[in-house]
Amino acid sequence: MSDSSAARAAILESIRTSLGAQSTPAQIAEEYAALPRDYKRSSTLDSSALLDLFQNRLEEYDAGVYRTTSAQIAATIAGIVESRKRHSLAIPEGVPTAWLPQEIRFEDATSFDAYRLDAVEGVLTGCTVAIAETGSMVLQNATAQGPRILSLVPDYHLCVVFADQVVETVPEAFERLRATDSVPTTFISGPSATADIEMTRIKGVHGPRFLDVVLVL
């Protein structure tokens, strides 16, 4: 193990020399608190316009969006999975049984390694919060979402989003994430993509190439 404490001291010293006068932590905190936050931090849309925006953004990313009610979640999922010609899905711990249709096989993949996940047909998860303006789902290591690898290695991701989880703006999402800001967190906005070749956005490089969203009203 290389010991970099000499480098640490030298770098911090160099920074302090460059900056000159130092402030106390209290002064810094005060200065930080006084920074302007004039950007938009709350919604302007009603709930129906909000969900329309969310759906529209997701569809622009080429994700499928299916609206349903809480009583119909399992039936809706069954239909989607069938249309995707899949028969089984991996799930994290804590997915409510009410989501799970009888005709599909579900296996708890919380402790699957990458090789096993590479062999599954797809994965079903929930999310923590979703952002309409950017068409994003935010997943954290939490109940019904599981470790990050789950929504990454399978080629197909089906995500359940409840209407009350959808906020309009990015700052509103951060407000909701505040309590869990140290947990592994992934913002997912559409299927994996690249624009590295001639700036053409194409779907599906390493993450799931197919993404569907069940939007529960």
């Binding site: 950017t134 290591n141 592994p184």
Partner: peptide, 21 residues
């Protein structure tokens, strides 16, 4: 950067998290 409203993936994490990563 890429002219997208949000890029497909953003990851944040702190240190190590047992059972994840």
């Amino acid at each position: 950067a890429t002219g997208e409203r949000m890029n497909p993936y953003n990851s944040t994490w702190s240190g190590v998290h047992p059972g994840d990563g």
